[in-house]
Amino acid sequence: MSLDVEQIRWIAHLARLELADDEIDGLARDLNAIVSYMDQLQQLNTDGIEPLAHPLDVKNVFREDVPASSLAVDEALASAPDRRGNYFGVPAVLD
């Protein structure tokens, strides 16, 4: 099943990626080649097989809730693109 330019734009929207028109054309070509290669998995009957999301059989690893020191404000904000006082500056979320 092939992906058209509109679907590529939709995926880019979901992924929050701005793409130039020539990038969209290139991605349509590349993703179609890759996805049609992936489609060979459909040949394999996997009825009754449990999905394996993770190689280790570990779940719900708990630890004690012990208070500890955390990063200082200046360290936490050192790589901020827009530091405003003790906060990260971002555009308004709501108009």
Partner: peptide
């Protein structure tokens, strides 16, 4: 805000990373 995300990522990532994010999405 959304435009900030899209543009920052569009400018900051290279072609293969975009390809894999797109495929994974």
């Amino acid at each position: 805000l959304i435009d900030m995300y899209c543009r920052s990522r569009g400018e900051g990532f290279g072609a293969e990373v975009k390809r894999r994010i797109m495929l994974g999405t």
